Amino acid sequence: MATPNPEPHLLWGGFLVLLWLGLLLLASELVYRFCQDGAEIARKIVHIGAGHVILIAWWQNIPTVWGVAVSLGVSLLTLISYRYPLFPSISGVGRKSWGTFFYALSMAILIAVYWPQQPAFAILGILIMTWADGFAALVGKRFGRHPYVLWGSRKSWEGSLTMAGVSCIVTLFVLWLTFGWHQQLWIIAPVVGLAAMALETLSWRGLDNLTVPLGSATLCFLLTQGLF
């Protein structure tokens, strides 16, 4: 008897995930090579864009094992790229940050822990890393007028407050879509936002790409268990 083929929607979901990641890498490499200040822009394209793969996985109901496998595969590629210039646009040789590796690793951990029974918390943690951390860096670089230095890392209050604010908005939106509106959201969202800001501030060498999503998702899960 012939082995049955995987369900079509799973094949389509896997194709969409790989297509999205491939387009992001292509765009980042083109920007890196041909645009002024291309290295920084290319990293932001990948940082903000890659997190949305979790929405494709949720939309297409990607199995846990697929999500974990793809995330770990990407993390392995980033480790190789730190040594060999496979993707210089996002992890060039000699960079002192493990952010890209932690980014993919955190996605694998969140999917393994929360998928598929409670995907909202995996989505929340990854979108906070994607949107809040990404926009905090952009705002801090462009509008940061009140800098501070912590553990040798230069940051700004404008960027840190953006981190807290966007994290709060992401938390409100994801929990509202998942659980409906509750007054407790006005407590949970600011607490998660401030925690995300603190985790980002206290991390270094890209470790925030691990501490922020995992810490935000875990804290939000515990708060919802206690307050809902």
Rank of each mutant, 00 (worst) to 15 (best):
G206T: 12
A136M: 09
A195R: 00
F135M: 12
A137Y: 00
S153M: 13
N209T: 08
R142N: 11
M129Q: 02
S153P: 04
F173K: 01
G165D: 03
A164V: 06
A189I: 01
L202R: 14
F173E: 01
F143Y: 15
V166P: 05
W157N: 15
T130V: 03
I187F: 12
A132C: 10
G134I: 00
C168W: 03
G140F: 02
T201G: 04
I188E: 02
L199F: 11
W186K: 11
G193C: 08
Y148W: 14
G159N: 07
N209A: 10
S156Q: 09
S160P: 12
L202D: 08
L172V: 09
G193S: 11
G134T: 03
G144M: 09
G140Q: 04
W157P: 12
L172E: 03
L185Y: 05
D133G: 06
T211L: 08
E200A: 00
T201F: 05
S156K: 05
A189P: 09
W157R: 12
I169V: 15
T201V: 13
M129Y: 02
C168L: 13
L185R: 07
V174E: 05
D133M: 06
V149K: 15
V166H: 01
T162V: 07
K155S: 10
T211D: 04
G140H: 00
G159F: 03
G165I: 04
Q184E: 14
L177I: 10
G152V: 11
E200I: 00
S160C: 10
W181M: 12
Q183L: 14
V170P: 02
R145L: 14
H182F: 10
T211R: 11
Y148I: 06
L210C: 09
Y148P: 00
R145F: 05
S156F: 10
F173G: 03
V192Y: 01
S156V: 07
L175C: 08
G134S: 10
Q184K: 11
F143R: 13
F179M: 12
